[in-house]
Design a protein around this nucleic acid. Structure first.
Lengths: 136, 136
DNA sequence: GATTATCCTATAGTTTTAGTAGATTAATAA
DNA sequence: TTATTAATCTACTAAAACTATAGGATAATC
């Protein structure tokens, strides 16, 4: 299941993306509009800033705003930052690879084989979907 | 991330599938061979029995065995029984649908839109992969 | 009747998730 | 310079989910 962190993060990004101007929007405004706990959203936006797609400004008139065009923001990055690895097992992860302790041989492992397919299909979706595709 | 329950369940099914005969195999044997806690595997196999693909026999000479041919066991069923919904949010789930409390409109929700694509791509993999495809 | 192995229920320990609290820093405006 | 606004940062807590473990009941075989 998708974590609320990711869910809220995506909603916040969408909210910023549909704004006409790229003026800073305070966290409080996003939180109210999307029914999210403000404090929780605070930490989520802080995390999202690491993608480099999001800028922030302190003080009056401050808030968060998109640095890049929504069409340049791929879901691969967003999902990895918020949700973590796209793969469902670490032994098929591209960015977070780790060998399974219990598994003697990856090549013959049925879990590995199945999850490789699932990863590829998910990756295909995330790579070909940008924030722009999510706003009607 | 895939739960260990699902991981172990898949490994157990694979182990049963590669047997030449369809004789009952005791849990202990599967557990030893696949590095799984026996008691944990017990409950997993019990769950898996609900799919109808798995039979069991008590007492001496007993154990678990496949009822159907591996090529007739699709991953959709296995994943749903072990891991739960294939969808990452309940509002795009086919078998476990539930409306999101916080979301006023599904049609315009960006999370809904993205997760619908992800569900379809995962479903495509699971529907077209049987247990037979996972054994080399 | 002894042994073997599944079946079933309850429970405990650990980790992750979701959210809170409160203080700090930076920008703006008076 | 002071007040206000809003992001930043650290620490903590409650609840849920996950990963088992324990112990007995049931059923089949020898």
């Amino acid at each position: 299941m998708l974590s609320k962190k990711t869910k809220y993060g995506l909603k916040a990004l969408t909210f910023l993306a549909i704004q006409k101007e790229r003026n800073p929007i305070p966290i409080a405004e996003i939180a109210t509009h999307e029914n999210i706990s403000q404090k929780f959203l605070e930490s989520i936006l802080l995390t999202l800033r690491r993608t480099g797609y999001l800028g922030s400004k302190k003080g009056k008139g401050g808030g968060y705003y998109l640095i890049k065009d929504p069409s340049e923001i791929p879901m691969t990055t967003v999902m990895r930052v918020l949700e973590g690895p796209i793969a469902m097992v670490s032994c098929v992860s591209i960015n977070f690879y780790e060998k399974c302790e219990d598994c003697p041989d990856e090549q013959s492992c049925s879990v590995h084989k199945l999850m490789l397919k699932v990863r590829d299909s998910a990756l295909d979706v995330y790579r070909n979907t940008t924030l722009a595709d999510l706003i009607t």
